[in-house]
Design a protein around this nucleic acid. Structure first.
Length: 836
RNA sequence: GCCCUCGUGGUGAAAUGGUAGACACAAAGGACUUAAAAUCCUUGCCCGUAAGGGAGUGCCAGUUCGAGUCUGGCCGAGGGCACCA
């Protein structure tokens, strides 16, 4: 069979496309479509995850372009971040040079995939042409009160004298120094994202093109809870403690008060030895919800008593390890009967358990085995008795407000976004410290505040802080000496507005221009990994709102209209007899019996189950890799890499070429009208189906339909169809294949039509009249079981179907000596005889 | 612990409440070939030469003429639960 030189056509068409530059059209009156895939971190090489992400994105971008949209499909680099600093230390390359080298390599790799990316719009976040605008946005936010300075705890490595990210803390020790990590309070910069908590929560409902899963994760993250605050009098101290609860309806079941170890009331115990020990124990428990939920409940008895606000009784006050100071008021009332944490705590410390919600499942309330958190009637609760939980909540809150001892309160779990990083390779924060201790933004004319190139990354502490003179500056207004902020911005800031920058990436004096934003935003389809479901997307949503607050002309609130989260690329894992990980390459050199094959897992360097896209492209060509990434698994689910899979994709590409060639060489044969009509109608159905499948992101099913379509073409060459008809149809097939495998499709089309195809509005139109089925197949059931099939023309009456069905041999046989007591008829679909 | 998602052949998977397993991989058998590779065809659990029948979408119930699909309970796997990008 004819085969084709894949490398040659890959290059031919990539050269052609790069000459044509982009698929974006100049006419801004046209309908736009902004297709964006999450930009990569330039770690060195692209990996299969990128290939999958960008292959999916390219299908959408090319498809929309061919459907007449003006498509924005840009690419950039999320190029600030820690790996560059680590690499700099290891390889003695500056972070800048290391990053630039990586970008050059990865750009070339991406280009070898033949993506329809407009490289003229390329941006890089570590480029001062990018971050100077980010500094400007920061100053705008600051002026609107969206930037605040607060004290917060960080993971502090006392040997490296640096702040560690959570993932750099391994078993409580610094990942590099192995020093025991301390909690240290630092004054840091924050974005006031919590200001938008409710807005960010409620607007999730407007994001109808987002996966429910992601919206739910965001909802939980924002964590709105409605409850109330109540003051409890502390008898001995003549003080009040304000608590927060979401279950005020259970107040009559309150048997203790618990406060955080960081609560102001604890000041009185600060000098007690056993309290200091207790607090130390508390800090050893992690701060994740899981850690808190699973940790053993620990309490410190204060000896204090609090007055219950509604009953003449006092309850003990404890300091407890599961109460966090930064949520609610840092104090709660414990109702052990209806909260599992309180229950565990009460059981441990012998505190009374009073049930106040009737649980229909338990007979006696004396021996509860766990807290009851379900619905029920209120009991043991004075004026709340017999009410439902919701009604009781309403009533008690009113009562609390009447007594002036508290009020209804909505709290959010969402905290302000800490953006200070004590690191070098990030965007400098454009603030300066004056002699009088005040902090002010730098003058916008001074932007960008550039990173120095001559830093020592091997010394301890923050490289910018340690730089001999970088931080020394002058206040522009007064001329007095000032010190620069030496913290840099969290790299999540960089990626929170890059999609905005893409609308006018070359603009010199402003971060964006309103008219470009007005035209291009929001992103119509955003595609990326689900690992960014919370932070990146939430921060971006915050940025859009913050920019709107600073500039009343910007009305867009939601940056991403459509969101698609694709699954990971997995591969089998291999170990040798010693339990060491092996790369797929290494397994070829070793005796097969000695290899332990593990389950497929996400490709990762540590497990050595990585397949390098570049070498695969060299062997199989870009189209085969793209095709394989789109086949088999639904895009939102994980996909498993296999050599067989990619080689079958390669065979398919070759087959396409072979069929194309045979169609071109075919001479006009005898034509039978009906056969040709039938062929055209079949093709039309596939065209319709595939178009719909792309719209719905069912790309794997679209691929399956392309296989069927290929079989149809293969079989049709021998049929009585005119060569002209075959050629026309083949050309249409190549056009709809263009988003998937653009190189081979372009080449085949060139062979068919003798001209270069370039993205124009040429998505083939389907003929609605041909979609109408003339014939249908009835399923004949007896007592709900399939007993036969019946092909008839469409829309025939029940009577006729029954008559024909009874004539079928197998149905006849089944009806002998039986009585049909009922028959269910569904038009054009099914007839079901119920017999006795 | 809490919240969420998913369980279909040897494998990846299809399937508006109406023919379960499309499409692809792997396997077995066959065709072509001196042979191999490549390519093409057939098969797919149980009974049967076949026609056909039986079982069957994690398990147990339920709704329905009809359930992979809807409802409830159970079992199992995966994900999220605050400073990597």
């Amino acid at each position: 069979m004819a085969s084709i030189d894949i490398q040659k056509i890959d290059k031919k068409w990539q050269d052609f496309w790069s000459e044509k530059k982009n698929i974006q059209k100049k006419d801004k009156k046209q309908k736009k479509f902004y297709c964006l895939e999450m930009f990569p971190y330039p770690s060195g090489k692209i990996h299969m995850g990128h290939v999958r992400n960008y292959a999916i994105g390219d299908v959408i971008a090319r498809y929309k372009s061919m459907n007449g949209f003006n498509v924005l499909h840009p690419m950039g680099w999320d190029s600030f971040g820690m790996p560059a600093e680590n690499a700099a230390r290891e390889n003695k390359l500056s972070p800048k040079v290391w990053t630039q080298k990586n970008i050059a390599v990865m750009k070339k790799q991406l280009q070898s995939l033949g993506l329809s990316i407009d490289w003229d719009l390329e941006i890089s976040t570590c480029d001062e042409e990018y971050y100077k605008h980010q500094q400007e946005l920061f100053i705008d936010f600051y002026n609107k009160g969206l930037v605040v300075r607060k004290e917060t705890y960080v993971n502090w490595d006392p040997i490296d004298e640096t702040v560690l990210a959570n993932e750099q803390v391994i078993n409580g020790r610094g990942w590099r120094s192995n020093a025991i990590v301390e909690r240290k309070k630092l004054s840091q910069w924050f974005f006031n994202i919590s200001k938008f908590s409710n807005d960010l929560l409620e607007d999730l409902d407007t994001l109808v093109e987002w996966p429910e899963k992601v919206k739910l994760m965001q909802k939980n993250w924002i964590g709105k809870s409605t409850g109330c605050e109540i003051d409890f009098d502390i008898l001995e101290k003549n003080k009040k403690v304000r608590i927060f609860t979401t279950r005020p309806d259970t107040i009559f079941g309150a048997t203790f008060l618990a406060i955080s170890a960081d609560h102001p009331l604890c000041k009185d115990f600060e000098n007690q030895k056993n309290f200091i020990e207790f607090r130390k124990k508390c800090s050893q428990v992690g701060t994740t919800e899981e850690a808190i939920a699973n940790a053993e409940k620990l309490g410190f008895e204060t000896g204090l008593k609090a007055q219950h606000p509604f009953i003449k009784k006092t309850i003990p006050v404890y300091i407890a390890n599961f109460i966090l100071m930064d949520y609610g008021t840092g104090a709660i009332f414990g109702c052990p009967a209806h909260d599992q944490r309180d229950f565990d705590f009460a059981t441990k410390y012998g505190i009374e358990i009073i049930p106040v919600v009737k649980n229909k499942d338990t007979k006696t309330n004396n021996k509860m085995k766990k807290a009851y958190t379900g619905d029920g009637e209120i009991v043991n609760s004075d004026f709340l008795n017999d009410l439902t939980i919701d009604k009781a909540k309403e009533k008690i809150i009113k009562e609390i407000e009447n007594k002036n001892i508290g009020n209804k309160k909505i709290t959010f779990r969402l905290k302000d976004w800490g953006i200070s990083r004590q690191r070098y390779w990030g965007c400098p924060i454009p603030m300066i410290y004056l002699k009088d201790g005040s902090v002010v933004p730098v003058d916008k004319n001074e932007l960008p505040i550039r990173l120095p190139n001559d830093v020592n990354l091997n010394s301890k502490g923050n490289p910018l802080e340690n730089h001999p003179n970088w931080k020394k500056t002058k206040h522009k207004k007064t001329g007095e000496d000032a010190i620069r902020e030496t913290d840099t911005l969290d790299t999540f800031v960089d990626s929170s507005w890059y999609f905005i920058r893409f609308c006018s990436p070359k603009l010199k004096d402003k971060p964006y221009d309103e008219s470009s934003l007005d035209y291009w935003m929001p992103v119509d389809q955003y595609i990326g990994g689900v690992e960014h479901a919370i932070l990146h997307l939430l921060y971006s949503r915050f940025f859009m709102r913050a920019i709107g607050l600073c500039n009343s002309k910007i009305k867009i609130k939601e940056p991403f209209k459509g969101l698609f989260t694709q699954g990971m690329v997995c591969h089998e894992t291999y170990k040798n007899e010693k339990g060491e990980w092996l790369t797929p390459e290494e397994t070829k050199k070793i005796d097969k019996a000695k290899i332990i094959i593990g389950p497929p897992e996400a490709m990762s360097k540590s497990k050595k189950n990585v397949i390098d896209p570049e070498s695969m492209i060299k062997i199989y060509g870009a189209d085969a890799i793209r095709w394989f990434m789109l086949s088999d698994s639904p895009p939102e689910r994980d996909i498993q890499w296999s050599n067989e899979g990619v080689s079958s994709a390669h065979k398919f590409i070759q087959k396409l070429w072979g069929i194309n060639k045979r169609i071109i060489e075919r001479k006009n044969d005898k034509v039978i009208k009906d056969e040709e009509k039938d062929f055209i109608s079949k093709f039309n159905k596939y065209l319709f189906k595939i178009t719909n499948l792309i719209e719905k992101f069912h790309l794997n099913v679209a691929v399956a339909n392309f296989y069927e379509l290929t079989h149809l073409m293969n079989d049709s060459i021998a049929k009585n169809i005119s060569s002209e008809c075959l050629r026309n149809t083949q050309a249409k097939i190549m056009k709809i294949l263009m988003p998937f495998v653009p190189h081979i499709a372009s080449e085949c089309l060139f062979e068919l039509e003798g001209k270069n195809f370039y993205h124009s509005n040429e998505w083939p139109a389907f003929d609605k009249s041909l979609l109408e089925e003339k014939n249908v197949t009835f399923v004949i059931q007896i007592n709900g079981k399939k007993r036969g099939l019946l092909s008839t023309i469409k829309n025939i009456e029940e009577k006729e179907v029954v008559a024909k069905a009874k004539n079928i041999e197998n149905i006849k046989k089944n009806l002998i000596n039986k009585k049909i007591i009922k028959s269910i008829f569904v038009k054009n679909k099914v007839i079901n005889f119920i017999i006795k």
